[in-house]
Simulated assay, not measured.
Amino acid sequence: MATIDLNSDVGESFGRWSLGDDLAMFGSVSSANVACGFHAGDPSVIRRTCREAAAAGVVIGAHVGYRDLAGFGRRFLDISPTELADDVVYQIGALQALAAVEGARVQYVKPHGGLYNAIVTHTAQAQAVVDAVKSVDPNLPILGLPGSEVLRLAEAAGLRAVTEAFADRAYNPDGTLVSRSLPGAVLEDPEQVAEHVLRMATESAVRAIDGTTLKIRAESICVHGDSPGAVAMATAVKSALGDAGVSIGSFL
């Protein structure tokens, strides 16, 4: 039976502000991208998320981003590579400590939002992320978009580069994600999302927004925890994969 990793962005609540149903998402996914406090999350939220992920048998990863709480980390920040590397090291370290007190550990790194999109092509920032991860633990894989600079540089540095696709995002014909500022960028129909994922998992393909079909090899597929109807989408994806004989399991 084929196996695919499903990951979700979690731990993104902050103080009295609640976002997503992380506990419900853990029933469908195998990997948890835990916010590290820079784009979302606070120490109590992060610790609780690690505890709940560990109890559910879900692998924990560091969801590092720009220091941009107000923008939820989705805006590009033109910061120096040195500052960015330090920020990434800081975030991984914070998550490692909070996971450790819950008897868990951080096993991979996935950049978030604006940073994720920037390091598809921004070589200097991509190198900063790679350098940061390697300096903390060269055994930590990095998740990224197929063909991205960050994955190219990760492989060059001897790190494991893990290709990722998105269950609930539309694709441009060049394989990049449609900007969230454009209509149709985020898919909200559980049936459509399940069909999208099934094509990725069984055909290594994705239908772009212009109707063309792209070949895409993904070791992990992301179902965003903050999307409208996220739990319903994750449940539909899990069911569709199971019906197709595809099991859900970590890429590690």
Rank of each mutant, 00 (worst) to 15 (best):
P141W: 10
P141C: 04
L143E: 05
L143R: 01
L145R: 02
L145K: 05
L145H: 05
G147M: 06
G147S: 06
G147N: 04
S148R: 01
L151A: 12
R152W: 00
L153H: 11
E155L: 06
E155V: 11
G158F: 00
L159I: 10
R160E: 15
R160G: 05
R160N: 11
A161I: 01
A161T: 08
V162F: 12
T163I: 07
E164D: 08
E164A: 00
A165Y: 08
A167N: 08
N172D: 14
N172T: 14
P173C: 09
P173S: 09
P173Y: 13
D174M: 09
D174C: 11
L177R: 10
V178H: 10
S179C: 10
P183Q: 12
G184W: 01
G184L: 07
A185T: 13
A185V: 12
V186F: 03
E188R: 09
E188P: 00
P190A: 04
P190C: 05
E191N: 13
E191G: 04
E191A: 14
Q192T: 15
V193N: 03
A194V: 04
A194L: 04
A194R: 05
E195P: 03
H196V: 13
L198Q: 12
L198P: 12
L198D: 08
L198K: 10
L198Y: 08
R199N: 11
M200N: 03
T202E: 12
E203H: 12
E203C: 11
S204W: 08
A205S: 15
V206A: 09
R207E: 13
R207T: 15
R207Y: 00
A208G: 11
I209H: 14
I209S: 13
I209D: 04
D210K: 02
D210T: 12
D210M: 03
T213S: 12
L214E: 14
R217Y: 14
E219V: 07
E219P: 04
S220G: 04
S220N: 14
S220F: 05
V223M: 05
V223F: 03
H224K: 07
H224M: 07
H224I: 01
D226G: 07
S227N: 03
S227V: 00
P228N: 07
G229F: 00
G229N: 01
A230M: 10
M233P: 04
M233T: 14
M233E: 01
A234Q: 01
T235R: 06
T235G: 01
A236D: 01
A236M: 02
A236V: 02
A236T: 02
